[in-house]
């Protein structure tokens, strides 16, 4: 409830001024509650004074940082580094999406986490993490605080069964860059993925939650059925 009201307010501010600073932690959610929820994350991540890299990187200063770039952490997945180079910056919106389902933003991420499905839980954790990032005054290029749309796809979309013959035709557009034999040279392999991963990845590009402009343009005009057809085809290669 609180989130809904605030996002309306933030949207208004954005429209009015074309500029808003980072939300203060207490505008994002309930940081006290977030601290408790963060225990789910703490087996891999530390945050706060003296935080160090563990299985995952420490999360100090995560707001506004380019994905996959924290100093001293060397175990990023190739996909996360690529996403950072493609332009993925950890805004509130992207963090919401990533916490809801990490694979929505980065296929092949090493963050093996089922996701926080409850929006309020995510907001609270992010409010907690927000305390360990810079103050708005220190961020010249501040970002809007609009709350993320739900990224999770409906069961109906995930249940669509694609026409493999159509998938084969549509796939011919992909194979100009992504090789059918699965080679991975500068452009990632897309063969043999679980169909669901493929579907959520393409929908994330279609909705411009993933950053890559080529993929956004190509996925943007694919229908739900066409995405299902492609997923079926590439899963079988």
């Amino acid at each position: 409830m609180k989130i809904g009201v605030l996002s309306v307010a933030a949207g208004f501010l954005l429209a009015a001024a074309h500029w808003v600073g980072y939300a203060a932690a207490d505008e994002i959610g309930d940081a006290e509650s977030g601290e408790k929820i963060f225990r789910k994350c703490a087996s891999c991540h530390q945050v706060g004074k003296g935080a160090e890299h563990r299985i995952g990187p420490h999360l100090n200063g995560i707001f506004g940082r380019k994905a996959g770039t924290v100093d001293g952490y060397e175990r990023y997945s190739e996909g996360l580094v690529r996403a950072g180079n493609d332009g993925l910056v950890w805004s509130l919106e992207k963090l919401h999406a990533y916490l809801e389902n990490p694979k929505y933003l980065v296929s092949g991420t090493r963050m093996n986490f089922a996701g926080l499905k409850d929006q309020q839980d995510r907001a609270d954790v992010l409010a907690y993490l927000r305390r360990f990032s810079d103050n708005p005054a220190n961020i010249p290029e501040a970002q809007p605080t609009a709350v993320a749309p739900e990224v999770e796809l409906s069961p109906e979309i995930l249940a669509l069964v694609g026409d493999p013959e159509y998938g084969e035709y549509l796939a011919s557009e992909c194979t100009t860059c992504h090789q059918r034999d699965g080679s991975d040279q500068g452009i990632p392999s897309i063969t043999g993925w679980p169909e669901e991963d493929f579907v959520i990845a393409l929908h994330a590009y279609k909705r411009k939650i993933r950053p890559h402009p080529v993929m956004q343009a190509y996925a943007g005009r694919l229908t739900e059925e066409e995405i299902a057809a492609l997923a079926a085809y590439f899963a079988g290669l």
Partner: peptide, 12 residues
């Protein structure tokens, strides 16, 4: 990415 594309399109 362009190197990947070159390999991809010439294979295609």
């Amino acid at each position: 990415e362009s190197l990947g594309w070159y390999a991809g399109i010439t294979a295609d």
